[in-house]
């Protein structure tokens, strides 16, 4: 999901920086107003937690291990606007320090994983959960929020890749950036995320929510709102 440098044309990465910037500005304004002095340590700790979630390897059926992006569960636990900042900060650190994702693609990566994913996950969870405070419906909501949140973010990423051959070609017809057209990028990204990575994300979301519901239900933002 981390788009490296070189795959997106300036026509794509510049507007996506702009789109992410709007969400960062709104989120920060909201926190500054609501939390005053506390918002900086609060967002820093949320970001550190968001980074840590991605580092835990979880055994998945089939004998292998996988890790979650965590944007969905962060949105459920801390709210979607906290997730916007927390996941963005993680993506910036990953791009600068670890070489995961490109510097020109920070805007795109933040838009996909720190804006689309938390909001989609959060609203799917809220809609499917309804008024239930536990049981099968709540866990179905958690699974769907993780699974669809990641899959839809992957779909948006695939569209960003897939439009490159349409908008940036050399004079001899050679794609200058991501070479895969929509007809390849969309099915490949959609299938691998719907059938594999999305399921891991859904499982992690359910596992964590189950633990919090049992031990710390008051800490869950998306549940205590009612």
């Amino acid at each position: 999901m981390h788009i490296p440098d070189g795959y997106l044309s300036p026509q794509t990465y510049v507007p996506l920086y702009g789109a992410s910037f709007i969400f960062w500005a709104v989120a920060l304004k909201k926190f500054k107003k609501d939390m005053s002095a506390k918002y900086i340590p609060y967002l820093a700790m949320a970001s550190a937690f968001s980074f840590l979630i991605q580092m835990f390897n979880i055994p998945i059926p089939g004998g292998t291990t996988g890790h979650a992006v965590g944007a969905g569960i962060i949105a459920i636990l801390l709210g979607p606007w906290t997730a916007v900042i927390a996941v963005s900060v993680v993506l910036i650190i990953q791009a600068v320090v670890f070489g995961d994702g490109g510097i020109t693609a920070i805007g795109a990566n933040c838009f996909n994983m720190a804006v689309v994913m938390p909001f989609v996950s959060y609203w799917i969870f809220k809609v499917v959960k309804g008024n239930s405070k536990g049981g099968m419906r709540l866990y179905t909501a958690a699974f769907l929020s993780g699974w669809l949140g990641l899959s839809i973010a992957a779909l948006i990423t695939a569209v960003e890749f897939g439009i490159q051959p349409l908008i940036a070609m050399s004079s001899d017809g050679r794609p200058l950036y991501a070479p895969y057209p929509l007809s390849v990028a969309v099915p490949v990204m959609a299938l691998e995320h719907l059938l594999l990575f999305g399921i891991v994300e859904g499982i992690v979301t359910v596992l964590l929510l189950k633990y919090f519901i049992k031990h710390e239900p008051d800490l869950i933002y998306a549940v205590k709102e009612y």
Binding site: K38, M45, I53, I58, P59, L77
Partner: peptide, 27 residues
Amino acid sequence: NTEARKWIAGRIAFMFKKTQQRCEEVV
């Protein structure tokens, strides 16, 4: 695997509480 997943969920939850606690201390 089931046990392992429960342990990891517990550790992530512990880290969540730890970050919240550290946030209060920093403030």
